[in-house]
């Protein structure tokens, strides 16, 4: 059975596995800073998946890492920074569950929208997110240096997501 848990920031073993999981699919790894940037500030927005039936049931086999910040002080924007599932566990709905858990949490925390970027050629990720309602808002030319273009995707959660920031009232707090 696959179980899902929020991140335990103190567990360095989990951290190490999660980093390996994500780096496996990147041509250029993220520096440790990027992981710490997300995880130390928003540990509650990271979810891990475990295979309880496996011998290594304490090693995460999937993870989603997010952040949430005010966008120009006008709307709350959730952001999915990283998502990966170990290759032999793919196609079983694990990523979908992880992403849903993260979005639910961000929605509860008051996010007006969820945003992310993904490569134009990453059909699996595009299918996954578009299947949840994300829209491609813009294309970015050679977003990944030396590599392909990217799409910026947004999932609107409230009406604030659909108004240009210039025309939204600034949050006072």
């Amino acid at each position: 059975m696959i179980s899902y848990r929020p991140l335990d920031l103190g567990n360095l073993l989990h951290f190490e596995h999660l980093k390996r999981l994500i780096d496996a699919d990147l041509s250029e790894p993220y520096s440790i800073y990027v992981y710490r940037f997300f995880l130390n500030r928003w540990p509650e927005l990271a979810y891990l998946a475990f295979d309880d039936d496996s011998e290594k049931s304490d090693e995460p086999i999937g993870c989603v890492i997010c952040k949430q910040e005010s966008h120009r002080n006008r709307r709350m924007r959730g952001y999915i920074g990283m998502l990966a599932v170990e290759s032999k566990y793919r196609g079983r709905g694990i990523a979908k569950t992880l992403v849903k858990k993260a979005i639910k949490k961000m929605q509860k925390e008051g996010c007006d929208e969820i945003m992310l970027e993904t490569e134009v050629s990453n059909n699996v990720a595009l299918n996954l997110y578009e299947g949840m309602g994300f829209l491609r808002m813009k294309r970015m030319f050679r977003y990944y240096l030396n590599e392909g273009d990217a799409f910026k995707l947004i999932l609107p959660l409230t009406a604030k997501s659909c108004v240009r920031t210039t025309f939204l009232e600034e949050n006072v707090d």
């Binding site: 929208e113 309602g133 808002m137 609107p156 997501s161 240009r164 210039t166």
Partner: peptide
């Protein structure tokens, strides 16, 4: 909401 997001650029 999806429609309105798509039309956001023209909303004003």
């Amino acid at each position: 909401l999806l429609y309105e997001l798509r039309m956001k650029v023209f909303s004003s």
